[in-house]
């Protein structure tokens, strides 16, 4: 088969009025019905073909974005999962597993130093309620990235909206608090507890994301405007964090209080707002209130202490009338 001939005949026919194509092709193709049929179809759909290719070229350009930058160290980037205040998260694979790679927006020697310091302690965290920290490295542009277990689940913010009873909400919250308690036992503070950092898997297991990341980004050398544009979400950040002070386990106590507040009310706490009458019984409201104290000295002094009060409620010993 000669497509040279195809090329010739196609262009010869194109120069003619459409009414003459059939006769021309019948004559030139000398009984080769396949060729004449192909040519006729090509001539008839030419315009369609060109616009199809225009679109194909556009989508090819978009496809490039995903096709080329596909590796980060030993990890192959599959697609972008999302972007947040602190960077972009990609779905990646490496060493036979699917992972989440978080590329941080900020760079600089200080961040890198902290990152290296922190890496060791993060990698020691091994708990079903914590998305595992697996590795870290730097992009070719020098930005640090973190590699974590990829968790399939719905954000707590979505989970809590689907008609859960109070006991169910408290149970899930307890699992979150236990994971934080475990991390504190390993000297790791979360520092950025909020509904979007908790994913609930299909089996109902909550998983905390981004453990220790807030501390990495807790840049004391850059307070003020720049710090506020960072990852902190005002509704969940402890007052001392908003003031630019270093984070501590008590920061997480506050964050847990905010999470519980929202789990019970489905609205974000504003300042050290108390639960409204009718939103929870007095015991639970008391737990939330004590975790959300502005003055650190008045808060629960540990997650364990908070958990103790929570277990009391779960055991049915503290079911007080609605506040």
């Amino acid at each position: 088969m000669s497509l040279n001939r195809l090329d010739e005949l196609f262009h010869a026919a194109r120069a003619m009025p459409a009414s003459e194509w059939r006769d021309f092709l019948t004559r030139e193709c000398r009984g080769d019905q396949h060729l004449s049929a192909t040519l006729l179809a090509m001539l008839q759909t030419e315009g369609e073909a060109f616009s199809w290719f225009d679109e194909a070229e556009d989508s090819l350009r978009l496809f490039w974005e995903k096709a080329l930058p596909e590796t980060l160290g030993p990890y192959r980037v599959l697609r972008r999962l999302g972007s947040g205040g602190m960077g972009t998260v990609y779905l990646a694979e490496g060493f036979g597993r699917t992972l989440a790679v978080k590329c941080m927006r900020w760079e600089g020697a200080e961040l890198l130093r902290r990152f290296l310091d922190e890496r060791q302690s993060l990698s020691r965290l091994d708990h079903p309620g914590i998305a595992r920290f697996l590795d870290g490295g730097r992009t070719p542009a020098g930005e640090p990235y973190l590699v974590m277990e990829y968790v399939e689940g719905e954000p707590l913010s979505a989970w809590q909206r689907s008609g859960r009873i109070v006991a169910e909400r408290v149970k899930l919250f307890r699992a979150v608090a236990e994971a934080v308690e475990y991390a504190h036992g390993h000297q790791v503070v979360h520092g950025d507890l909020k509904p979007n950092n908790v994913l609930v898997t299909a089996s109902g297991q909550p998983k905390l994301l981004d453990f220790g990341v807030a501390k990495l980004l807790d840049r004391q050398e850059a307070p003020g405007a720049e710090a506020r544009s960072g990852p902190l979400t005002p509704a969940y950040a402890a007052p001392e964090q908003m003031a630019g002070e270093p984070i501590s386990p008590l920061t997480d106590v506050y964050g847990l209080g905010a999470l519980l507040f929202e789990l019970l009310t489905e609205r974000r706490p504003a300042g050290n707002e108390q639960l409204l009458p009718g939103e929870a019984d007095a015991w639970l409201a008391g737990i939330v209130g004590r975790a959300l104290r502005t003055d650190r000295a008045e808060r629960y002094q540990s997650v364990s202490a908070m958990l103790q009060d929570l277990r009391e409620w779960e055991a049915g010993r503290r079911t007080l009338p609605t506040a």
Binding site: A41, L43, E48, A49
Partner: peptide, 8 residues
Amino acid sequence: TARAWLFH
């Protein structure tokens, strides 16, 4: 030619 052929 190539585009018309490929499309077809």
